[in-house]
C-alpha cells in the first residue's frame, strides 16, 4: 500500500491557521480605516511597512533555522503581528521605529522562543513596550489631525515625513499652522491634567475633547469593537477573554469613578479610549500567549482589565494595555495549570 496510513479521525474541518489569521486581519479593517481617517495616511504606511518587515524578518529567521520558509510564512501569523505593531505605533513615527519594533517582535520574542506556538509573550505587545521604553518621544507623538484635516497631509507628504525623518517639531509647526490642535491622546491629556491638579471635568472641558479629538478615539474604538464582534460571530475568537477584559475594566473604573469622580475617569472613557477595544479583541485574544481553558480565559481577561485600570489610574504610563497583556502572558501558564477543567468521570473534589 502506498498511501500514508493516518490515524483517525479522517475528517477535519476546513479551518486552517492561515485562514484564521487572515480573517482576523480582515476583521481589524474597520478599526484600521477609522484610524486612517483620523490620523491620515501615516497609519496605512506604517502598517504596510510593518507587515513587509515582519514577513521579511520571519523569512530570514526561518531560513537561518532551516525551517520551511514558504509554508510557515503563509500561516499569516507574521503578517498579523506586523499589522498589530503598525496600528500601535504613532502614524507619523519615523520608519525605523516600526522596523526596530517588528524585528524585535519577530526575531526575539517569537522565533528565538521557537516560533509560532512557543512564544511566551505576545510579540506585538512586547515590541510595543520595548519601543515605548526605548523611544518615548517618538512613541507618544500622536500627531492628531482633526477629522476635517484628514486630507491635509497627503500620502506622499506622510511618506516623506516617515522616511525622511522630519522631526516632530517640524510636523508640529506644520500642523500648528493648520489647525493648532494639541497632539496628546485623551488618556495622556487626562493623565497630565490630573497631575497638574485639574479635575476630570475641567480636563474634559478642554478643547481637545470637545472638537472631535476625543470623539476620534472613541470612533476608532467602536470600529475595533465592531470588528471584534464579527470575529466572535465567525468564532475566530472565543468570547471569554474580551468579555472578561471589558467587564473587569468597566467594574474597576466604575468603582473608582463612584469613589472619586473628580480624579478618576469614568468607565465609558476607559472603555472607549486608548487601545481598549483593539487590545481586548485583537491582542489579548492571541491564543498562543493566553490561557486556554474557559475559566482560565475568564481569569486571564479579568486580570488584564484589572491591570489596565491600575496602571492607567496609578501608573506612570497613560495607556497600559501592552504592560497588562505582557503581565497576564506571564501568568497564563500558571492560570492554565491551576484551572484545569474537571475531566469526565472525575468527581469535583480535588
Amino acid at each position: 500500500m502506498a498511501f500514508k496510513l493516518a490515524s483517525s479521525p479522517h475528517l477535519s474541518t476546513k479551518a486552517q491557521t492561515r485562514g484564521l489569521m487572515f480573517k482576523v486581519m480582515l476583521c481589524a479593517l474597520p478599526g484600521v480605516l477609522a484610524q486612517c481617517y483620523f490620523f491620515g495616511w501615516g497609519t496605512l504606511i506604517q502598517i504596510a511597512l510593518a507587515i513587509a518587515i515582519a514577513i521579511a524578518t520571519e523569512a530570514a529567521v526561518l531560513k537561518l533555522r532551516a525551517r520551511p520558509v514558504g509554508k510557515t510564512i503563509s500561516d499569516n501569523s507574521a503578517a498579523l503581528t506586523g499589522l498589530l505593531i503598525g496600528v500601535a505605533i504613532p502614524a507619523m513615527a519615523p520608519w525605523w521605529i516600526a522596523g526596530i519594533g517588528v524585528v524585535f517582535a519577530i526575531l526575539v520574542v517569537k522565533q528565538l522562543y521557537g516560533g509560532l506556538g512557543n512564544n511566551i509573550f505576545n510579540p506585538a505587545m512586547a515590541a510595543y513596550v520595548m519601543l515605548l521604553i526605548s523611544f518615548p518621544v517618538q512613541m507618544t507623538s500622536w500627531v492628531a489631525p482633526s477629522g476635517a484635516a484628514l486630507n491635509d497631509l497627503g500620502f506622499l507628504q506622510s511618506l516623506s515625513i516617515i522616511f525622511q525623518g522630519a522631526d516632530a517639531e517640524q510636523i508640529l509647526a506644520y500642523r500648528a499652522g493648520i489647525d493648532g490642535v494639541t497632539m496628546a491622546t485623551p488618556l495622556d491629556a487626562v493623565k497630565t491634567g490630573l497631575s497638574t491638579g485639574l479635575t476630570l471635568d475641567e480636563i474634559l472641558a478642554k478643547a481637545s475633547f470637545s472638537d472631535g479629538f476625543g470623539i476620534g478615539w472613541a470612533v476608532i474604538n467602536l470600529a475595533y469593537l465592531a470588528g471584534g464582534l464579527v470575529m466572535l460571530k465567525l468564532k475566530l475568537i472565543r468570547w471569554q477573554i474580551s468579555t472578561a477584559i471589558l467587564a473587569s475594566l468597566f467594574v474597576c473604573a466604575s468603582i473608582g469613578y463612584l469613589l472619586s469622580p473628580d480624579t478618576h475617569m469614568g468607565p465609558l472613557l476607559h472603555l472607549f479610549s486608548g487601545a481598549t477595544m483593539l487590545a481586548a479583541f485583537f491582542i489579548a485574544t492571541d491564543p498562543v500567549t493566553a490561557a486556554t481553558s474557559t475559566r482560565g480565559r475568564l481569569i486571564f481577561g479579568a486580570l488584564i482589565g484589572l491591570l489596565v485600570y491600575l496602571i492607567r489610574s496609578f501608573g506612570g504610563y497613560p495607556d497600559a494595555f501592552a504592560f497588562a497583556v505582557l503581565l497576564a502572558n506571564l501568568c497564563a501558564p500558571f492560570i492554565d495549570y491551576y484551572v484545569k477543567p474537571r475531566a469526565y468521570g472525575h468527581r469535583a473534589s480535588r
Binding site: L116, R238, T292
Partner: peptide, 9 residues
C-alpha cells in the same frame, strides 16, 4: 502536514 499548535483551545 502538521503545523505548530497555536494553543487556540
Amino acid at each position: 502536514p502538521e503545523q505548530p499548535c497555536i494553543r487556540c483551545g
